[in-house]
């Protein structure tokens, strides 16, 4: 499983990364979390609002910090 957190580095992007990491710990899943800060790559995912979370190439949310429960549901938990 590959997870990307997209965002140029605003406070909400950091919060999102924290939530994603917490969800992974809770689910006990071995997954890579990649932080994407490059505008070109963020835009190539078709995202117009940051922070956004991409799980296995699929955009799961954009423009808000997701809740722990939401992230867990994307992980299939």
């Amino acid at each position: 499983m590959e997870i990307k957190v997209l965002g140029p580095g605003c406070p909400n992007c950091h919060k999102t990364e924290e939530v994603v990491k917490m969800a992974l710990l809770e689910a006990g899943l071995p997954a890579k979390v990649e932080k994407v800060t490059g505008m070109m790559e963020i835009a190539s995912h078709g995202v117009m609002r940051t922070p956004a979370v991409v799980v296995d190439g699929q955009v799961k949310c954009s423009g808000k910090v997701p809740s722990l429960a939401e992230v867990l549901s994307w992980l299939g938990r």
Partner: peptide, 8 residues
Amino acid sequence: PAKIELPS
């Protein structure tokens, strides 16, 4: 982009 490995 920084890659962060998390413990399994």
